[in-house]
Amino acid sequence: MIEWQFESLAALIAMAPHGPFVWSVYGLGALVLGGLTWHVRHAHSHAITRIQRQFEREGGHESET
């Protein structure tokens, strides 16, 4: 049922004659999705470290209560 459209990996990459267009679109897609994923994860961990730092600056006296 699965029928590969390309004989070789080289043919898949070349996708003659449209390879550069197709692959640049998918490369861009990976870049944007990857970049967003990195950004949201970074923002989350950044928020955590900022709160922790704020917590330490207040001297941690709240941990006793």
């Binding site: 590969w4 390309f6 197709v22 998918y26």
Partner: peptide
């Protein structure tokens, strides 16, 4: 979409951009 779907008889392989666009 990139490797198994049949090629478009009018646009050739460039139509495979559809699977992202």
């Amino acid at each position: 979409g990139l490797a198994i779907a049949p090629v478009d008889y009018q646009q050739g392989h460039s139509y495979r951009i559809i699977y992202l666009h």
